[in-house]
Amino acid sequence: MKQLSPATRARYFRRQLVDRLMGGLCMLAAGIGLALLGLILWMLFSKGLGGLSLSVFTNSMAQPGAGGGLANAIVGSIIQVGLGAMIGAPLGMMVGVYLSEVGKESKFASVVRFVNDILLSAPSVLIGLFVYQIAVEPFGGFSGFAGAISLALIAMPIVARTTEDILRLVPQAYRDGAVALGSRENEVVRKVVLPAAFGGILTGVLLAVARIAGETAPLLFTSLGNTNWSTDMTQPMASLPIAIYRYAGSAYDEWVSLAWTGAMLITVGVLLLNILSRFSHAAVAGKTGG
């Protein structure tokens, strides 16, 4: 082999050095991120597991020393998040379908897309204040409904965005094939495009649910929180994030411990949703061969 000139050798080693340096920095950043996540989880479980008992799931919140749990907050969260997703997800999907399949690059679609992006990054406390104005004040009080609406408003733009993104990944060839067979626009979307994108859209919905499950600020001004057992949607309703917010800052060890347990429960729930969304995506993709 020909001997390399000193200049070439120097350049070679410099490039190799820079390459290793950059790779090392990336590894370091990834490591820091992973370590932080691990620390948070470790802290959550070490502090949260202690307060975990059956009474957390069976008893409503109560005075310190009265053996209170989080049952009302857990059920309240499930109701409000469930209803919020049921309102926000279909609306978001329809917006996404409009943007990807109907409006496309039209002026109006661009405006909708822009507004949706703003909504996506709007501070959630603002959404809480907005819903307070339209659904709390006019009806004379805080309610589970208002809480669900505020969560729906947070879920909607997330679902709209993921739906549009996923639909754009559906090959144009599917649409052409359906059109060439004499399908109308709505048939192309309903029978070919949406089924092809189903797994991805479901993932988007589950991620939106995971996101709203942890929201606190919008609920402060809408469902307020409730220390008693209540499933009445017209009355203030408890939720896990608000229970954590109230308990974590309290002076009672028992309450602080319950706050940690609540935080752990939300995290585990969100983790399960994420795993489920991956699973659903893979299952649908496998079924269709896509």
């Binding site: 090959p171 060839a173 599917y174 052409d176 094939g177 359906a178 059109v179 060439a180 067979l181 004499g182 399908s183 048939e187 029978k191 070919v192 089924p195 092809a196 269709t288 061969g289 896509g290």
Partner: peptide
């Protein structure tokens, strides 16, 4: 109506992401 009378085959095969049966059944069902 025109496209129902005139079929088209594209450059790249474009089966729908469905079963073989469902692919064929798509047109007759529509």
């Amino acid at each position: 109506q025109v496209r129902t009378r005139i079929g088209m085959v594209f450059q790249k095969p474009n089966p729908f992401p469905m079963s073989i049966y469902e692919n064929i059944a798509y047109g007759p069902r529509t």
